[in-house]
Every structure is written in C-alpha cells, then in structure tokens.
Simulated scan of single mutants.
Amino acid sequence: MCLSIPMQIVELEGEEGEFAWVERGEGEHFRRERVNMMLLGPQPVGTWILASLGLGKEVVEEEERLLIEDALAALAESLEGDYDPARHFADLNRQ
C-alpha cells in the first residue's frame, strides 16, 4: 500500500507539462520532487495534488487537503506518543 500526500505544483517541465516539480513542508520537513503528470494532464502552478512514488494521482481541493493534512498530523503525533483525539478529526467529531 502506498500513501499519497498533498504536494503543491511549483514548476512545470516539458513542452506539454508532462512533469511537474512539487513541494510541501518547511525546514527539516521540506520535500521537493519531480512527478509524472500523465494521469492528471497539465495543471497550473499552485495546484495541490496527491502524489505517490513520483506520480501525480489526483487534484485536491483546499477543503479536502486540510482534512488530509490533519490526518497526517494526527499520525505523526501518535507515532511520537503525543496524540490527543480532541485536536484532530473535527469533521468526525460533530454532534
């Protein structure tokens, strides 16, 4: 199983935008990679996509991206032994 993570397109490559440079994070968590865009086609710079193993898989809208970022933060906290369920998954905790 592969985990796709949100990455923002910062640069296009190739005559038809077949590849894109994408980035996420800051400081020690900064990540930049080149992804193949054959499944998505060319997308404008600034677009958020889900990327995995060098392949752009899906365009992500901002609301969905924020939910994914929250889930990733919850996972990171649980791995560090500092998980508090009240801080995450607000969309599931509605009453």
Rank of each mutant, 00 (worst) to 15 (best):
C2S: 09
C2M: 06
C2I: 06
L3Q: 12
L3I: 14
S4C: 13
I5P: 00
P6T: 13
M7R: 15
M7V: 15
I9D: 08
V10D: 10
E11G: 03
E11I: 02
L12T: 10
L12K: 13
L12W: 08
E13I: 06
G14A: 03
E15Y: 04
E15P: 04
E16G: 00
G17A: 05
W21S: 02
V22D: 01
V22F: 03
E23H: 06
E23K: 09
G25C: 02
E26H: 09
G27R: 05
G27M: 00
H29L: 09
H29E: 09
F30H: 11
F30R: 11
R32F: 03
E33P: 06
V35R: 09
N36A: 12
N36E: 13
N36Q: 11
N36W: 14
L39V: 11
L39Q: 15
Q43S: 03
P44Y: 03
P44K: 10
V45T: 12
V45W: 07
G46Q: 08
W48E: 04
I49T: 06
L50A: 15
L50G: 15
A51F: 11
S52K: 00
L53Y: 10
L53K: 12
L53S: 13
L55Q: 15
L55R: 15
L55C: 12
E58R: 15
E62M: 12
E62K: 14
E62D: 15
E62Q: 14
E64F: 07
R65Q: 15
R65N: 12
R65H: 13
L66S: 11
I68N: 06
I68H: 05
I68Q: 05
I68P: 09
E69A: 09
E69Q: 14
D70N: 14
A71M: 09
A73Q: 14
A73E: 13
L75K: 07
E77Y: 05
E77F: 03
E77H: 13
S78Y: 03
E80L: 12
E80Q: 14
G81V: 00
D82I: 03
P85D: 03
P85W: 02
A86F: 04
R87W: 00
R87T: 00
H88A: 05
A90P: 00
D91M: 02
L92P: 00
R94H: 04
